[in-house]
Amino acid sequence: MPQDNKQDIKAIIFQLNEEEFAISVQQVSGIERMQHITRVPQTASFVKGVINLRGVVTPIIDLRKRFGLDAAEFTDSTRMIIVYMEDMEVGLIVDAAYDVIDIPQDAVEPAPEVVGAVDVDYIEGVAKLEDRLLILLNLNNVLTDDEVQALKTVEG
């Protein structure tokens, strides 16, 4: 861990449906503005399509759809957060992405049993920071397990 303070998690904060989420910076390779997305037919509904990310064809996932939230129009603040997971590179569409902040390890609490409609297994924990409540995402579970399996076996 290269961080100065081992107690802190450096995380990117993004917004989705009025809630704030956090992903560790180590998993993020960049934040992109919206651009043309090419739809890929016959894939899971939350797979928005693919984009040309500086010459690399990168799949894009609509996080709202993934979390079962209502769809929203893309605005000027809509962003794609490009994340690495294992050997995959995937973009996540979020309502807005903010700065990087340090979350002290001791501010993180394990995920409560029930957090609204979001399935518990992609939540690693919840961090309380002054007046903010941040949901820490477990990226592997956002895309792997059943969902990716389902994706990989999509067939006509």
Partner: peptide, 25 residues
């Protein structure tokens, strides 16, 4: 290739980048 995330998409063997920068399947 469509990457390691989207494998085995039916009837799509890959993608390419067109002159306008967009991806075509």
């Amino acid at each position: 290739s469509l990457g390691n995330y989207l494998t085995d998409v039916f009837a799509i063997s890959g993608a390419t980048i067109l002159g306008d920068g967009q991806v075509a399947l």
